[in-house]
Design a protein around this nucleic acid. Sequence first.
RNA 1: CGGAGAGUAGCGCAGAGGCUAGCGCGCUUGGUUUGGGACCAAGAGGUCGCCGGUUCAAAUCCGGCCUCUCCGACCA
Length: 487
Amino acid sequence: MDEGSSLMAEAITPRSQDFSQWYTDVVQRAGLADYTPVRGCMVIKPYGYALWENIQKALDQRFKATGHENAYFPLFIPHSFIEKEAGHVEGFSPQLAIVTHGGGEKLDEPLVVRPTSEAIIGHLYSKWIKSYRDLPVLINQWCNVVRWEMRTRLFLRTMEFLWQEGHTAHATYEEAEEEARRMLSIYADFAEKEAAIPVIQGRKSESEKFPGAFMTYTIEAMMGDRKALQSATSHNLGQNFAKAFDIQYLDQSNQLQHCWTTSWGLSTRVVGAIVMAHGDDQGLILPPRLAPIQVVIVPIHKNEDEKAQVMAVVEQIKVLLGEAIRFRVDDREGYTAGWKFNEWELRGVPLRIEIGPKDVAKEQVVLARRDVPGKEGKRFIPQAELAREVPKLLEMIQQELFERAQKFREEHTHEPKSYEEFKSAVEDGFALAFWCGDAACEKAIQEETKATNRCVPLDQSNAKSSSGKCIRCGKPANEKAIFARAY
RNA sequence: CGGAGAGUAGCGCAGAGGCUAGCGCGCUUGGUUUGGGACCAAGAGGUCGCCGGUUCAAAUCCGGCCUCUCCGACCA
């Protein structure tokens, strides 16, 4: 076949050549999502949805383990509710989708399609909470939300997206703060253990925080193009929403008190994070713990005789892998083995088992690691060892993906000593630098470098020793912040 | 929402006023194949993004709209 034509028709844009295009290609070609006729709204295809379901499982389990329950609140919110909290309405009004008609008639009061549910949930909490004995309330919901967006990208920013939003109410500031921090650490744990993405836990600046929040916490991750992606957030809402929605309780001394509330969310955006944190020129690389298919078995045979032999061994392998491993046998006819290899690599399956006549004869299989391309990632192992080796190898891949991402982030995180160094640092990745806390300084940095303040890391062990001067204005500073170009 | 580009078969593209709109890949059927994107043969598949206008004649020219991509401003 002459070069090119058939190969080129299959190829995705190389990551190094055009990261954005690579991302868009991979998401579609791997079967995660597709466009729809509605601007900014995507369809999450079965493979992408299976990935999301695994994300849900991993998170939901953590939420339940920390005492939270799931519930469901309505999609429509009376417009007036959104307006009750000043910061909230200001922040969200440009992004609202508003229903003005229903049943063929103009509505007396327009309904907002929820951009988030603080307002409606606040209203209900005020009904449900009367006494300190009712607290804390720890509820989560899995749902869709709508935010009108100017510029959209698959998973990263769509007008409608799926997420979970936790909403809790507490008796004291300290409890709410503890809750917000606990959920942040749960997100961090999820990101690192399940998605194999190292994250920085931090506090958002005044200008970056959630509309209506007292304090916003974030986990920030570095993508393969060295840009930052906020992967989840957790808010200590103080008493802002409690006051706006009259969420009050009688304390033990019969005094009426406002609650302290929190909210926290993680969206389908993390699917994009997984794509961009781990993928390569061949396509997706999924972390084994979240991969819809952890192991793909590719039988190889030339004739019916061989097929019978190979498939008999495949049956044995299926038993060896057992219930715990998510595997698929790719026994499709009419595709060559090589074609299948490429296909499953594009789709990011962490581990491949190749089994052909030669392996049957030697009672072995070929194990190929997705994260280690080519021959280097292949090894022969005796069939008898599969039950032991496969889980071990999946665990190893999980760990090494994390370590690779962490090393990458470290290599592209700098601690500039001057503003000049700072400028080149944010060209390369993250800059960790003293910042005076002034919003004007933050804004100037953004205008001058295109880098935004991602967060003030909770872990300031880096900052303790040095005396602090703001990287831009030189005024005294007692904290370091992460600056980076961001999604 | 501003700037730039794109939309012709499932995908990638050619056609730039004139006969029945092509090519590659993919798809279907049959056969040979399968250890890194196989091959042969025969087929199927199109209101040229949508609406309107100009013209004897529009995929092609003009206007409006829709969607996508990239770059900005805003955001999970």
